[in-house]
Amino acid sequence: MPDEIKMETNYNLEDLNEESLAYVNRLFAERYKQWKSDLHHHFQAFDDPQVALQEDCPKELEGREDS
């Protein structure tokens, strides 16, 4: 994520009510599970994990290193 966007983003979750916090937690959990699934499918395409690591990152996973 570019630094100028990071500086504009506010991740203050302290003032959320319980319902909103539960929604955010579900959303984060879903996104994390999808990210793990995408990586798993990428690695399954190769016979050797070391070869998978040497290959370029799939386009749909680029820029998601800190996700």
Rank of each mutant, 00 (worst) to 15 (best):
M1Q: 06
P2F: 00
D3G: 03
E4I: 05
E4Q: 10
E4A: 09
E4M: 05
K6Q: 12
M7C: 01
T9G: 05
T9K: 12
T9L: 15
N10W: 03
N10K: 08
N10M: 05
Y11R: 07
Y11M: 13
N12M: 10
L13N: 07
E14Q: 07
D15T: 13
D15S: 15
D15F: 10
L16R: 11
L16T: 14
L16H: 14
N17K: 12
N17P: 12
E18A: 14
S20D: 14
S20L: 10
L21C: 09
L21M: 12
A22R: 02
A22S: 02
Y23N: 07
V24W: 10
N25G: 04
N25E: 12
N25P: 03
N25L: 13
R26M: 09
L27N: 03
L27E: 08
F28Q: 04
F28C: 03
F28G: 01
F28V: 06
F28I: 06
A29C: 01
E30S: 01
E30T: 01
R31Q: 11
K33D: 08
K33T: 05
Q34R: 04
W35V: 12
W35K: 15
W35E: 14
S37H: 03
S37L: 03
D38H: 06
D38G: 03
D38S: 08
L39W: 15
L39E: 05
H40L: 09
H40V: 09
H41M: 02
F43D: 00
F43H: 00
Q44D: 13
Q44W: 06
A45I: 03
F46I: 06
F46C: 05
F46M: 07
D47H: 01
D47S: 04
D48H: 00
D48K: 00
P49L: 01
P49W: 00
P49V: 00
P49K: 01
Q50G: 01
Q50N: 04
Q50R: 04
V51K: 01
V51A: 05
V51G: 00
V51P: 00
V51M: 03
A52Q: 07
A52Y: 10
A52T: 08
L53D: 07
L53P: 03
L53C: 09
Q54K: 04
E55R: 07
E55I: 05
E55F: 06
E55P: 07
E55C: 10
E55N: 13
D56R: 03
D56W: 08
C57N: 13
K59T: 10
K59E: 14
E62L: 10
G63N: 11
G63Q: 12
R64H: 12
R64Q: 14
E65D: 15
E65Q: 12
E65A: 11
E65I: 08
D66N: 08
D66C: 10
D66W: 15
S67I: 12
S67A: 14
S67E: 12
